[in-house]
Design a protein around this nucleic acid. Structure first.
Lengths: 341, 341
DNA sequence: TACAATAATACAAACGTTTGCATTTTTTAA
DNA sequence: TTAAAAAATGCAAACGTTTGTATTATTGTA
């Protein structure tokens, strides 16, 4: 009843040749006669032969799969990066296996462990905000599995490549832009303080304010404490309802914060950008739809993924994985000016 | 230099027992003495043993991986479904391997072929709009690989389970809602005509209009012809710039169309919902941020994924995969009323 | 026509597990 | 104490490939 899978042996038997020859013929190995190759290819096609990837992997020690661990699925940033990884990977005959660490260090470790079981040839990982120690990553590297880290890297890991955005510089430029537009009371809305990228973006904000001698109103600074959309929304609404100073500009650390900020301000009756300018961070498509459209820092997310994949695959091809020289790639951002400033 | 992976043999040698016993001990098979089991577990831990997933798969004939093929990554709908699949899958010890068919029938076929190589135990697929014939899917099923289809299914495939939304009913209700609110000149904005879900949503619109004897203005009907954000945007803007009749409501087939519609109408100076009501479809989070927030049909996307995974894993456990009785699951939607109506 | 050189093919081990069956060891009961 | 029963362990095949080396077949050359 159940159709058995066709394997090399079946082809070999039918043609009265050895399995080795069939294997080589399918590989177009010049060691087999052309006429034999032709026969084999035809018979394979005829019998509906499909190579067994698992057996291949076991034999070759390569699975051609890249493991990717991201903090969450439902963030366009990570999806864009994954698209970039996938794009480069596919061109080089790799598939990607994505796992979410759900913003939890424990899950991150678990996922990493599960990738230790030989299913993947290497790993691309973006640490969660909870990730403070990196021994789990070092331990993977020690086992000879190549690793590339991207975004939100609190601690450099020798032996792993890094791909990151110049977050501080990017936010410096964004705030500088507001200052040059004549804004004086510039607020800041960032994310949880534990996350490195938010720390850096905050630093850029402070640096810019100081560089131009603009007084900083502590009251106009908010670090959202949640990672969930609804709560962020509440926090931002609450923030604007309680401050006494009215800002003339707000620099926010994500597109989403920017949009939520605009939404709140519009509902309160402010005009954007006349009364208050708003800047976001990320440029993930939505900023363009909102009315007014959101000026923001644009990150090369897709390229980030491509670069990460490139570095990883380059590691695969290094002769000795234990004296890998760490590479750190910093990607540039640019400011996209729209209607909110 | 290079640390070799620890394998069963290494543990066996160290403890002077057989590989079989080690294998069984790690499985906590009651056939091995408890004291032996303990020794093995300790030694495995000590030596840093990690099972080889590939070898396990080859031996057992199961990879515990589910292949997922979606038309594109950068659509929140598919991401949500994938999250649902992943959620259910993980709970049942499966991983998911996602491939994008990039809205191309050819890529869909290619992806399917690549999944035929034994890497996955089963496949969950959402057909592209280009997919007219289903022989490629039938051929996979014939090989004994379980398949579940979701969303946008033009033709039922015997042997595969289906998970779908009652698109026509959903849009019927949405339009009915507008009618009951007293709207008369109700426009329709849908997607490419080749896509089954858009056909169904259009049908629901027509059905509702006819059911309530509302005259249909052909001029107020737009089928977007592109699948790319910018072009959709252009098409919608162009649409409103050229129509002579002013609608008092627009039913759109996606959240994105809804948002783009609102954006365009707001820019033209219309008030929403006073002058024109707008309804979207999907409820993918953005509708809540926009001002005014978007009323829309809410789909259970996450659940759709969970259900698909559930059906697939149920197929794995069926005794004979060749007399599988097709299951068709239809999921219900509900209308979420917000400020745009 | 014979012999080396070369081309084509075959053999068998290896990849790291699982598992049915055989064997050995231990326990139980007469 | 001894045989049978039960428990614990071991052997070896199997999963479907790849690949180094051995073998056989086919050339070319003197």
């Amino acid at each position: 009843m159940k159709k058995r899978r066709i394997k090399l042996e079946d082809i070999a038997r039918k043609l009265n040749i050895s399995i080795a020859t069939v294997s080589r013929a399918l590989d177009k190995n010049p060691r087999v006669k052309l006429s034999t190759q032709k026969k084999v290819l035809e018979t394979a096609e005829l019998m509906g032969y499909m190579p067994n990837q698992i057996a291949k992997s076991l034999s070759s020690g390569k699975t051609n799969i890249i493991g990717v661990i991201i903090p969450r699925y439902d963030e366009p940033f990570f999806i864009e990066v994954c698209r970039g990884i996938d794009h480069y990977a596919r061109e080089h005959n790799y598939k990607i296996l994505i796992s979410s660490s759900r913003n939890s260090f424990e899950f991150e470790r678990e996922n990493l462990m599960s990738f230790e079981k030989g299913l993947v040839d290497g790993i691309i990982l973006s640490p969660t905000h909870e990730t403070e120690t990196f021994t789990h990553i070092r331990s993977i590297i020690k086992k000879g599995i190549p690793v590339v880290l991207f975004d939100n890297i609190k601690e450099e890991v020798s032996g792993a490549d890094h791909v990151l955005i110049e977050d501080d510089k990017a936010s410096f430029s964004a705030v500088e832009f507001l200052i040059k537009k004549g804004r004086k009371k510039i607020g800041f809305i960032g994310g949880i303080k534990e996350k490195k990228v938010f720390q850096d973006r905050f630093k850029g904000y402070l640096d810019a304010m100081r560089a131009y001698d603009i007084p900083i109103h502590e009251e106009l600074i908010l670090h959202c404490s949640s990672l969930e959309r609804q709560f962020e929304d509440n926090e931002i609404q609450h923030f604007f309802n309680t401050i006494n100073t009215t800002p003339d500009a707000i620099f926010t650390c994500t597109d989403n914060y920017g949009l939520l900020t605009m939404k709140t301000l519009l509902k309160m009756g402010y005009k954007i950008p006349e009364d208050i300018s708003v800047i976001g961070f990320g440029d993930l498509g939505l900023g363009n739809i909102f009315v007014p459209s959101l000026t923001c820092v644009s990150q090369p997310n897709f390229e980030m993924g491509e670069k990460a994949a490139e570095l990883l695959i380059a590691q695969f091809n290094e002769s000795n994985e234990f004296n890998h020289v760490k590479k750190v790639i910093k990607l540039k951002t640019n400011l996209v000016e729209r209607d909110s400033t």
